[in-house]
Design a protein around this nucleic acid. Sequence first.
DNA 1: ACAAACATTAGAGTTTACTTTAGGTTAAAC
DNA 2: GTTTAACCTAAAGTAAACTCTAATGTTTGT
Lengths: 150, 150
Amino acid sequence: MGYTIGQVAGRMGLTAHTLRYYDKEGLLPSMRKSSSGLRVFTEEDIEWLIIIECLKGCGMHLKDIKHYIDMCLQGDATISERLELFKKQKERLEEQMAQLKKHMEKVDYKIALYTEALKKGSIDSARRNQYLASEKERIFGSEIKSITRP
Amino acid sequence: MGYTIGQVAGRMGLTAHTLRYYDKEGLLPSMRKSSSGLRVFTEEDIEWLIIIECLKGCGMHLKDIKHYIDMCLQGDATISERLELFKKQKERLEEQMAQLKKHMEKVDYKIALYTEALKKGSIDSARRNQYLASEKERIFGSEIKSITRP
DNA sequence: ACAAACATTAGAGTTTACTTTAGGTTAAAC
DNA sequence: GTTTAACCTAAAGTAAACTCTAATGTTTGT
């Protein structure tokens, strides 16, 4: 009673290759093989896969997922550690979110600039040079005097 | 009159390796070398670096940055294409943002679950099994009947 | 004039999460 | 009973953006 790797792959939206890879990486602790060496997926394996998908859905790396699985196998003693893991993950996500927002601001600025340029037919080089000058000032301080273009 | 690779690297917060890599990838179109083969960074090179940093700050891949630089070199004729590039980048960022928000929701759920578990000393296996069951239903439909754990 | 600090190159290595390939074994269908 | 579809392993390949190595060359300071 069980599923073949192909059946599970199809159902889970993964490839058989990926499932073998997960197995090799120790993400499927309940995996068993038939006498002839074929993987037989049971309910338990599928549950682990669902957990893996959930954690991937948290943006977690496979290494951390592996660590989580190992902790699960150790039982309730690791609950606080598992909570910590998710808290750290939340921090990571928040950082990424902040980063994305900064990126978005820059992109919006560029879109505004180029939308304007498209109207005029050429980019506003005064504005462009002003940006470069201020960045140079920020990065090089007073080391650079000339900020004009050759 | 110019800067050495080490000076620029230090000032820009990059390594000399990275600058050589950028040069090799064609991201520094104005790079010149001294008679003895050493890179001499001019104002213009630094301006390109500032532009590269800005675009990296938009979350853009180096390949797209290279493309952008090539378009800049072609002048005002490419303005509308450059605008398109940033609009596409904005879409990409919005997608990533949506993804991150989904991740965050899942992580928050896990934190709630484990915070509760920590209080009780063990995880709520009824709740856990309910989640697994609903996911299995979603993924496998009616194919799986038994949803209990061995 | 010579050492220390800094530069050069080509090319190999790193990371993550797969994906592909090659060469074979097993199971299902007819 | 044979073809074919699906499976196996081990190992190499991929992408991005560096990062490092080794062997060598150049510049600067004393």
